[in-house]
Nucleic acid binder design. Structure first.
Lengths: 205, 205
DNA sequence: TGTATCTGACAATGCCTCATGTCAATATTT
DNA sequence: AAATATTGACATGAGGCATTGTCAGATACA
């Protein structure tokens, strides 16, 4: 008896859904490369497709437009990063200040491993559209929650945390842009200053 | 006897140089309006000229292209802002922490007076071009110097100051974007936390 | 083996903007 | 009043890119 759920034909041993998903992922990974090379603003659909070794047809199969790809790519990259940061935070046993440092160490290490994409996602994500802004704000909130877990009853991100994240991001951006002049320990220590003061002040509220 | 230095004809009682300068300024002021309305990225040369009540011809008389206008406009706006902040700093007599607060109060007050341009210049200035990035970095350095004057022998902006400015900017951006939910005193106090810690740490180095 | 689906290369269209050019109308000097 | 500089409105062309469409060839199923 035939399985009515499997409407799609196998191709290369995989179903249509999987092939679609695979192409989508390839486009996202290609986007990271292309954005890193020329920046998002000058990245054309064509260039991304060439890097992914797919044609425009498949681009529009997965994304409505260039901006949708940017959003998917940003989410993909930040999700991965935040997972690693969260893992480092959970692995660390000790006081809150030490935990912040462990998380920051992962953050800055990853940034140093991917200089060009890091620059793009730190620098170019502002003012492209309301949707992109919203996605970016979500990512910043996630980072804020990692570095300074909100108090139990907290309903929204405090301005203190907003400042903290801004400090860390700006330090990161400068560090990346200038070619990593300081050591990892140095930048982590500097960024940690802002985490520490945030923890101290928000606890003492 | 004719004056050979005055080669230009008077028009409306003013010389060519002055008329040019006046048109240039009108374009800059129009740019502030247009950028505020639609953002820099969607601001066309045509729209700016219409707002300035000038034609494209006069645009290219003063600016090589759209980006040159952006840079001129950004410099115009930040110069004005920094002058006011500097004045507030000099007028204040007291300790460094109090001075920071006085300067921040001016900063946030000005941002609240011009919500839309503020949003644009805080948000959209990243990753447009190397020139714009350089101009922006200069502005951030100027702000850093105001809020936490560098130690006497300091040769370059410290990463601590970079973090501080990032914190203040991010607080400002959030405050503006969300429609000023906190009081002026509140945001100033929160931002001041980051200035204080910067002053304390950089002094104790 | 035949048929339907999938894939890749490429063409074609349409849209928008920058930047320059043209030309008549206006203002100023002599 | 005549000549010249200045201004404003508009036209034009060049270029780039997104998006859709076409079509032949390849692959899997029956």
């Amino acid at each position: 008896m035939t399985n009515p759920a499997k409407v799609s034909r196998l191709y290369g041993g995989v179903h249509a859904d999987e092939r679609r998903a695979e192409r989508r992922l390839r486009l996202i990974e290609a986007a990271v490369q292309v954005y890193g090379r020329v920046g998002y603003r000058s990245a054309t659909v064509k260039a991304v497709c060439e890097a992914a070794k797919l044609t425009e047809r498949y681009f529009y199969e997965s994304f409505a437009n260039s901006e949708a790809l940017l959003i998917a790519t940003y989410i993909h990259v930040t999700d991965e990063l935040h997972k690693q940061m969260a893992a480092a935070g959970e692995a660390f046993t000790g006081d809150a200040a030490g935990k912040s440092r462990a998380i920051l160490a992962v953050y800055f290490t990853r940034l140093r491993e991917h200089p060009r994409p890091a620059r793009v996602f730190l620098l170019e994500m502002g003012g492209i559209s309301a949707e992109v802004d919203a996605v970016r704000m979500n990512a910043l909130k996630a980072m804020s929650a990692l570095l300074a877990p909100p108090a139990k009853g907290a309903t929204e991100t405090s301005m203190l945390s907003v400042g903290m994240v801004g400090a860390v991001i700006n330090i990161a951006l400068r560090w990346v842009s200038q070619g990593y002049p300081q050591s990892l320990d140095e930048v982590v220590a500097t960024a940690a200053v802002f985490c520490d003061v945030t923890l101290a002040k928000s606890g003492a509220e």
